[in-house]
Amino acid sequence: MAKEQAAEKIEATENPKVKISIIPRFCKGCEICVKLCPTQVLGMEMFKVKVVDIDKCTICMACELRCPDFAIFVEKK
């Protein structure tokens, strides 16, 4: 996890396999991560990304790879 991002308010969701961290202030609501997630782990709430079902996450990293705003990070446990 990035040091600077750690200074930001972070919404983390996790299960035994994976931890997904979201930085609401950085998210601009473009929905790229939501639409490109192959297993619909993510959704939108008030124009910000939100983890909808973490157990569906296959840790493919598509969301972190294509988020243009450093707003979502995936950490495999």
Binding site: M1, A2, K3, E4, Q5, S21, R25, F26, K28, G29, C30, E31, I32, I59, M61, E64, P68, D69, F70, F73, V74, E75, K76
Partner: peptide
């Protein structure tokens, strides 16, 4: 696995100027 971009970014510059959805 999450890549630490922070080591290369100048502090306090995010969020950047590019529009929502700009790649």
């Amino acid at each position: 696995m999450a890549f630490n971009y922070d080591q290369y970014i100048r502090g306090g510059k995010l969020p950047h100027i590019w529009c929502p959805g700009c790649t």
